[in-house]
Simulated scan of single mutants.
Amino acid sequence: MHLNRVIATIAAAGLAATSLVACGGESAEPATPGSTDANGQTTIKIGTTEADQQAWSVFHDLAAEQGINLEIVPFSDYAPVNEALAQGELDVNKFQHIKYLAEYNASSGKDLRIVGSTEIVPLALFWKGHTSLDGIEGQEVAVPNDPSNQGRAINVLVQAGLVKLTDGVADPLTPTPADVDKKASKVTIVPVDASQTPAAYNEGRPAIINNTWLDRAGIEPDLAIFEDDPNSPEAEPYINVFAARAGDIDNETLNKLVEIWHDPKVIEANEQDSKGTSVEVTRDKAELNDILTKLEKK
């Protein structure tokens, strides 16, 4: 099935997406994922903000070959996707990293858990007209100010040797500007809205820009002068995952979807979508949920 046929499928599902979470506490007890029809097809409803990417077209077709009718429900914003899952409007979702999921659980009191890992996208530093860190000392570096990206952005600068944190930082995985030792650092951090980081870059200032805004601003990822190590402990909170309700994470069909996402054909398409920046991650489910629990406590 080509991408336009998948879009036709998700467009129909999109009608339902606009009404998700509208009923609040009136929703019934969520059903077990994976109803099977008379033809032996198992239907799974999955929510994402990335339905238009080529990897999802490949994923859809491979799932169909495994007897799984994947009903892709597209969302234009992150906020409703977890709530739709918690209320039983979805069987599973894939759009977020572990830290975002932890923040949702902690703020909502819900208990969504991880079915499996997918990939991680390094976060990078860009400086227009420069190909290295040479000459960056004394510069003001724009970093995104949202909770999901700010701590990681600061750690990019720590790994680059440009910033030092003060002694006794409460949470070195997600530091804040208050944790930066300004006298010992080589650059000054300037938090801005994530959407403004490309503007800082185009004005000639160094900036840490995530992939969403790189793509929208037409900035090529290979222009980065430094990026974080996706295999470092500091990067663990930013592993992207499949999430489901706690009672469903061992569901056979949902776990099959994780396997399918790691099929070489999906990985290749994901590489194309991310312009080579995506790094495949295969981590044990129990280990991933331990990371989630630790982040929730923090």
Rank of each mutant, 00 (worst) to 15 (best):
H60Y: 13
H60A: 06
A51H: 13
K45T: 04
I44R: 04
S57C: 07
G40V: 07
D37F: 12
Q54D: 15
Q53K: 15
T32N: 00
G34W: 03
V58W: 04
T43V: 03
F59L: 02
I44A: 02
E29D: 12
E26N: 12
G24H: 06
E26I: 10
G47H: 03
N39I: 12
S35T: 09
E26R: 15
G47C: 10
I46A: 11
Q41Y: 06
G24S: 10
D37V: 07
E50G: 01
G40L: 10
Q53I: 11
T43C: 05
V58M: 01
T49Y: 00
T48R: 08
Q54M: 12
T42W: 01
L62T: 12
A55V: 04
W56I: 11
A51P: 00
F59K: 04
A55D: 12
A51R: 00
G25A: 14
S35I: 03
D52I: 06
T32D: 05
V58S: 01
E26C: 09
S27N: 11
H60L: 09
S35E: 14
D52C: 05
G25E: 12
T42E: 10
D61W: 03
E26F: 07
W56R: 00
K45Q: 11
Q41V: 12
E26Q: 15
V58K: 02
A28L: 14
G47V: 09
T43L: 07
A55L: 04
S27W: 02
I44F: 02
E29P: 10
P33G: 01
E50F: 10
T43M: 06
W56G: 06
G24N: 08
P33F: 02
I44H: 04
P30L: 08
Q53H: 14
L62N: 13
F59D: 04
P33K: 04
Q54A: 14
S27M: 04
G34Q: 04
S57E: 11
D61L: 09
A28P: 10
A55T: 05
G25R: 13
T32W: 04
P30H: 09
T36V: 15
I44M: 01
T43G: 06
Q41N: 12
T49L: 06
D52M: 01
K45S: 11
T32A: 06
E26D: 15
I46E: 05
S27H: 13
Q41K: 14
G47W: 05
D37S: 09
